[in-house]
């Protein structure tokens, strides 16, 4: 069975606010909860603010942990700078939590 793909722009209207980040969280959380694979397509997406990241990837990390994130989620169709923002955010959050 093919890994499902979620297109970010189908889920959110912008990547700058907490409210929109919460919508992405809601779309991805069931997959992390079930331990199933999912791809997130960033085609056409804008760069993500920290508020958006807090309520999406930040909350996913809080509730499911880095192992679940690594197991389930892959990013596709990304421009390098956008993916770098997400990766740095996750790395920084893990570093802070470890401190």
């Amino acid at each position: 069975m093919d890994t499902p793909i979620i297109l970010l722009n189908d889920v959110v209207n912008g990547t700058y606010t907490n409210d929109e980040g919460a919508k992405l969280y809601a779309a991805l959380a069931p997959h992390l909860a079930a331990g199933t694979a999912v791809r997130l397509s960033l085609r056409g997406a804008s760069a993500m603010s920290t508020s958006f990241l807090n309520s999406s990837f930040g909350d996913l990390l809080d509730h499911y942990g880095i192992v679940a994130l690594r197991t389930s989620l892959k990013l596709v169709d990304f421009v390098p700078s956008h993916a770098a923002i997400i990766k740095k955010y996750v790395d920084d959050l893990l570093t802070l939590e470890a401190a």
């Binding site: 690594r70 989620l73 892959k74 596709v76 169709d77 990304f78 421009v79 390098p80 700078s81 996750v90």
Partner: peptide, 15 residues
Amino acid sequence: LPDVEDEPDADELGF
């Protein structure tokens, strides 16, 4: 300021 980036990368990226 950087130039507009190329089309999305064909790879997939994990954490």
